[in-house]
Amino acid sequence: MHTPAAKAGATRKMKKDQMERSEITEQLTEIMIDVFDLDELDYRDDLSAADIEEWDSLSNIRFMVSVEKAFGFRLSNSEIESLDNVGEMVDLIQQKLA
């Protein structure tokens, strides 16, 4: 089993090779399960706060900062507040890692 720190390290190492979208969504799913206290999650690009009861303004900050830590970059405040669904988050992660 990988520790979160090891995963974050592995993620940073992969930056050069551009992570596959599926790898990003897999990692994002794990983060969402942890942050939103879910038992499981069927990932879809159009998942949004409306679909997940625990995803509110309070937990959104934890979600975004968990993404920052996992993928090794910093989001701006406008980026933190402007994303409508997780698909857009995946797009943004790909841009940041490019």
Partner: peptide
Amino acid sequence: IREEEINFAR
């Protein structure tokens, strides 16, 4: 406070 919460989470 939102600014502070982001800083605190980080």
